[in-house]
């Protein structure tokens, strides 16, 4: 019972932290420099890794789908199905996982080291709200940065699929694009972008929370970074299932 109570208590603390962090985004003063710095860190600095993983994901997926579809003579469907799969599922999920490991881990480590070296206390006694100054810009960067990265991932994965389908599997490029136009819809993109928006907020809130409340010196920072990344990844995968079903219901 006490473990359950502890879990509920901790969840309460976490959701209170989330509420305050999100509301603080809309509270003055707006430090634009600070917002841009974190946005650049989450979005721009993740771009190369997203491009790299995106193109290989598209290529691998196209190849596997081709091997399946060729058995019943439907190889023309590889392009659109890669596009739909990437836009609705793989794009948001993989982008979320990659960015939570890269940027989320850095957020947790940075805030954790600030906590254990009393820099967060110093901010507070200077009359600067640490949540407003440190957490909210990171959360906003997560919310806004991930959909952009997801869109880039989708695009580059489709390009990867194109390269494999046309260059290696000798499919017709006109048929590839025509089938995409026939089957792939913008609503698939919107669904993926909506998911990535939620995942962006999720990983940044979880990682910031773990870092913000880190304790126990260097070991504590390491532990909170580790837990931040693990919880973010697991939450993204679980949320993806529920979000997919929720979107299906709303549709």
């Amino acid at each position: 019972m006490s473990a359950l109570f502890y879990f509920v208590f901790k969840m309460g603390v976490f959701f209170k932290f989330c509420k305050k962090s999100i509301l603080n985004i809309f509270v003055k003063p707006f430090r634009l420099e600070n917002y841009f710095e974190h946005f650049e860190f989450v979005a721009n600095q993740s771009l190369s890794i997203i491009l790299l993983t995106g193109i290989f994901t598209g290529m691998a997926l196209a190849h596997q789908m081709y091997l399946g579809f060729i058995r019943f003579n439907a190889a023309d469907l590889v392009g659109p199905l890669v596009a739909v799969g990437v836009a609705r599922e793989l794009g948001p999920v993989l982008t979320g996982l990659i960015v939570s490991a890269r940027a989320g881990g850095a957020m947790a480590a940075r805030l954790g080291s600030m906590r254990v070296t009393t820099q967060i206390d110093a901010l507070e006694v200077m009359g600067v709200r640490p949540l407003h100054f440190l957490v909210s810009p990171r959360v906003l960067a997560g919310f806004l940065g991930l959909p952009i990265l997801c869109a880039v991932f989708d695009l580059i994965a489709i390009m990867g699929a194109y390269v494999i389908c046309i260059g290696l599997l000798s499919l017709d490029p006109a048929v590839f694009w025509q089938q995409i136009q026939n089957i792939f819809k913008m609503s698939d993109v919107y669904e993926g972008l909506f998911k990535s928006f939620i995942f962006g907020g999720t990983f940044s809130l979880i990682c910031c929370y773990k870092g913000y409340f880190a304790k126990g010196g260097a070991k504590g920072v390491g532990d909170s970074t580790n837990l931040g990344i693990v919880y973010s990844m697991v939450t993204i995968i679980i949320m993806d299932f529920f979000l997919s079903n929720l979107i299906k219901l709303v549709r």
Partner: peptide
């Protein structure tokens, strides 16, 4: 409270400078 804290200048044990 934030405005009031301007009245306090604090030097922390490990300096707590923003790195």
């Amino acid at each position: 409270l934030n405005a009031f804290r301007k009245n306090l200048g604090v030097v922390f044990q490990d300096s707590a400078l923003f790195d």
